[in-house]
């Protein structure tokens, strides 16, 4: 066959760049690929099996969107750039990290994402909790504390605390390092995956953890509100209080969620209860809210059913792996 013939046979491709929390990857995608084809390729490359928490995110006209799985990549409203960039991120959060995150890679990606959200102050965190979290992050990165090796200044390059916390105290970089190191030294013997899991176990109790917030308006009196969607349900907050919702609808108590143009309607299971209607800023945002509701609701229901064979196998594998690691760690 001639070179020309070979060339003709090759399918047309386009390039994408996928950015994870700690790596960048480039892929050649076939023009006909659906979102799922690209997503599966990324998951296979990462060795990730707990795929249901994740998605490929992009930004279009200032709004965050997630690549749809069942639609062709090129038929979606993605940015016109070469290569097209996607962020591989957790889209849904577990209700209990210690029970649901099985693979080490899944835990690690969650750890990195939540740590960034805390440092970027997207999740509010008190100063004392940030110090404790920082000590686990240091244990995960540096292993056991060794004063001969971890000399003063060893944390100078690490971003460990949110800027807001640093500003709250008259403390030098070295004083912070000393404080964090004192707690870091307490974690001796904890392996990297355990330290990251301890970090997540603390972070999951923070009020803003795992909540996607959207500004909304209620039709009645046009008060500005925030809608929060998370693993447990839908919450309504005052615009200046993202910590405690005024009202919550657990997934099991919701009959139906629907939208038309900018209006979204939540119908509670209890037919006597008031139907909650509100407006979001754009149709696109409504679609995103609904997407997050459907995904979170599905996971909520899945958690309350018997584990699939795949999950049972993964749980057994995770248990074995943990036991093996613990033994190896103790032996060392």
């Amino acid at each position: 066959m001639s070179i020309r013939g070979l060339k003709k046979k090759q399918p047309k491709t386009f390039k994408v760049k996928v950015i994870t929390m700690d790596a960048e990857m480039e892929f050649s995608c076939e023009m006909k690929w659906k979102g799922k084809d690209l997503f599966d390729l990324v998951c296979r490359t990462l060795g990730l099996r707990e795929t249901w928490f994740f998605g490929l995110q992009y930004t279009i006209k200032g709004v965050c969107a997630w690549l749809k799985m069942e639609k062709k990549v090129l038929e979606q409203e993605i940015p016109k750039e070469d290569p097209t960039q996607f962020r591989f991120l957790a889209k849904f959060y577990p209700e209990k990290v210690e029970e649901e995150l099985l693979q080490e890679i899944t835990q690690h990606l969650f750890f990195l994402q939540v740590k960034k959200q805390i440092l970027d102050e997207e999740i509010h965190c008190s100063p004392e909790v940030t110090v404790l979290l920082a000590s686990y992050a240091v244990q995960a990165k540096y292993g056991d504390y060794d004063p001969n090796f971890h000399k003063p200044g060893f944390l100078i390059q690490d971003e460990l605390l949110p800027k807001r916390v640093l500003k709250q105290y008259q403390m030098t970089v070295h004083m912070w390092e000393e404080k964090i190191t004192a707690w870091y030294a307490e974690h001796r013997g904890i392996a990297r995956d355990e330290a990251e899991m301890n970090y997540l176990k603390i972070a999951q109790d923070l009020a803003m953890y795992g909540v996607n917030y959207f500004p909304i308006e209620q039709n009645k009196n046009h008060r500005d509100l925030l809608l929060g969607v998370d693993a447990k349900g839908i919450h309504v907050y005052s615009i200046n209080n993202r910590f405690s919702p005024n009202r919550s609808f657990e997934w099991s108590a919701i009959r139906n969620i629907s939208y038309s143009e900018k209006e979204l309607t939540i119908k509670p299971l209890d037919k006597k209860a008031e139907v909650f209607k509100f407006f979001s800023s754009q149709l696109k945002v409504n679609k995103l809210i609904l997407q997050l509701c459907i995904g979170n609701h599905d996971l909520f229901m899945k958690r309350r059913r018997v584990d699939s064979i795949e999950i049972q196998q993964m749980k057994a594998q995770a248990r074995e792996e943990k036991a093996r690691k613990k033994m190896e760690h103790q032996r060392l």
Binding site: S126, E128, V131, K167, Q168, Q170, E186
Partner: peptide
């Protein structure tokens, strides 16, 4: 000596207390 890591809440209390003397007036 590093503080003893007893329980989560005790740890938080200890950190809070140790930070207190350094709090800026506006945030204390």
């Amino acid at each position: 000596n590093p503080p003893k890591f007893v329980t989560y809440h005790k740890a938080l209390q200890e950190i809070r207390n140790s930070l207190l003397p350094f709090a800026n007036e506006a945030s204390s």
